[in-house]
Amino acid sequence: MKIIKIKQLVKRYKELVALDHFNLEVNEGEILGFLGPNGCGKTTAINCMLGLLTYDKGDIRIFGEAMTPNAYHIKENIGVVPQELAYFEQLTVFENIDFFCGLYIKDKQKRKALVNEAIAFVGLEDYRKFYPNKLSGGLKRRLNIACGIAHKPKLIFLDEPTVAVDAQSRNFILQGIKRLNKEGATIVYTTHYLDEADSLCDRIIIMDKGHNVIDGTPEELKSMIATKEIIHLELVEQATPDIIKEMENLPHLQLMDKNKAVYILQFSQKGSNIVAIAQLLEQHNLAYLKLYSEQPSLSDVFLSFTGKELRD
C-alpha cells in the first residue's frame, strides 16, 4: 500500500515556485529519508501533506484518500515531531504528553495507558512530574517525540529529531525510531545528518529546487555517482611537481584535491588504485603518515546532485 502518494504538486509564493510538479510515494512500513538543502521545498511539501497549506495544482493522497485541511479522520492517524520543540512550559512531562494525546484520544483510561507507554518508550519515567525548563536538551527532544507519537499514529513525520543533542541521546532516539518502525509505523524522516539517513532509512529521496532529483536505497544512490573509490594520502613532506604529475596520470583518476602534504584522490573505478599509489610512493622513496581507501558516502551523493554552493 502507498501510505503517501503525491502527483505533480505545484506550490507558488508569488514569483517563487516552492514545489515544481513534485512527486512522492511512501510505501507502507518503510523509513523514508526525505533530504535536501535549505530552501529546497521540503518544509512546504510536508505542510501540504499535513493539510496545513493549500497548493496551486496536483493531488495528495494519504492512506489512499484525498488529503484536505478538514480531513481529520486522516490526521488522527498521523504523528508530527517538529524540529522546533513543541510543548507547554507550564505543564509537566506527563501533562504535556496527555494534552497532545488528548487531541486524538478522548477516553481518559485509554489515554492514560498510552501516555504511560509513551513515557516509558522515550525513557522519561523518572521525569514525569518535571517541567520542561528542568530538563536537559536530550530529555526535551525525547519529550518532543513522546508528544508526537503517544496516540499511536500509523504515519510519523520526524523533522530533525536529533539536532543539538549528545551522542548518547542521539543513539537512544535513533534506536527508538527503529522500534517505532518495527511496531508498524511508516516514517518520513528529515535530517541534515546524512550518516543517520544512511544507517536508518530504507529508501532516500533527495529534492532540490522544488522537485525530486534522485530516489533509491542508500546503496543505489551511492552507485549512481561517478566516483567509486576515494583514497586519502598524507605524506611526511609535500610531493614535488613531477610526482604530483605522476599521481594525476594514474588510471581512472577523476579528481585530486591537495592541501600541502595531504591528498584526496577520487577514482571512477574500484580495484588496484591504492596498490598503484603505494607502488609510486615506494618507487620515489616517499614516506607517508596515512594511506587508506573508502567508498563514497551519502554526503558525496548529496553534494554531487545538489552542488557545493552555500544555501540560505
Rank of each mutant, 00 (worst) to 15 (best):
I4D: 08
I4F: 02
L9H: 07
Y13W: 13
K14F: 04
E15L: 02
E15P: 02
V17A: 03
A18I: 00
D20I: 07
N27S: 11
N27Q: 13
G33Y: 03
G33E: 11
L35M: 09
G36D: 02
P37L: 09
N38T: 13
N38R: 10
G41P: 01
T44R: 10
A45C: 02
M49T: 05
M49D: 01
L50Q: 07
L50N: 06
L52E: 12
L53W: 00
L53Q: 14
T54H: 14
G58P: 08
I60R: 06
I62S: 01
I62W: 01
F63N: 12
G64M: 04
A66W: 00
M67I: 11
P69T: 06
P69D: 11
P69M: 10
P69I: 07
Y72I: 12
H73T: 09
K75C: 09
I78A: 08
G79S: 10
E84C: 02
L85T: 08
A86Q: 09
A86E: 10
A86D: 12
Y87K: 05
Q90E: 10
V93P: 08
F94S: 04
C101G: 13
G102N: 06
L103K: 06
L103M: 15
Y104C: 01
I105D: 02
D107L: 04
K110S: 11
R111Q: 14
R111A: 11
A118P: 07
I119A: 04
A120T: 09
F121W: 02
F121K: 05
L124W: 01
E125R: 10
D126K: 15
D126A: 14
Y127P: 00
Y127R: 14
K129V: 01
P132H: 11
N133V: 04
L139Y: 14
K140M: 06
R141T: 04
R142V: 03
A146R: 10
G148M: 09
G148F: 06
H151W: 01
L155A: 13
L155P: 12
V165R: 12
D166L: 06
A167Y: 02
N171Y: 12
F172C: 01
F172Q: 14
K178D: 10
K182N: 14
T186H: 07
T186K: 11
I187C: 08
V188I: 15
Y189W: 08
T190A: 15
D195H: 03
I204R: 03
N212S: 05
N212K: 12
I214F: 01
T217S: 14
P218Y: 00
A226P: 01
T227N: 09
K228V: 04
E229Y: 09
H232C: 03
L235W: 00
D242A: 15
I244R: 13
K245R: 13
L250N: 08
P251A: 13
P251Q: 09
L253T: 06
Q254R: 09
N259Y: 07
N259K: 02
A261C: 07
V262R: 07
Y263T: 02
L265G: 02
L265H: 09
F267K: 03
Q269Y: 05
G271D: 12
N273E: 14
Q279Y: 09
L281K: 02
N285E: 10
L286Y: 11
A287K: 13
A287H: 08
K290L: 13
L291F: 02
Q295E: 15
S297N: 06
S297R: 15
D300K: 07
L303D: 03
S304T: 15
F305V: 15
T306C: 00
G307Y: 04
L310E: 14
D312M: 08
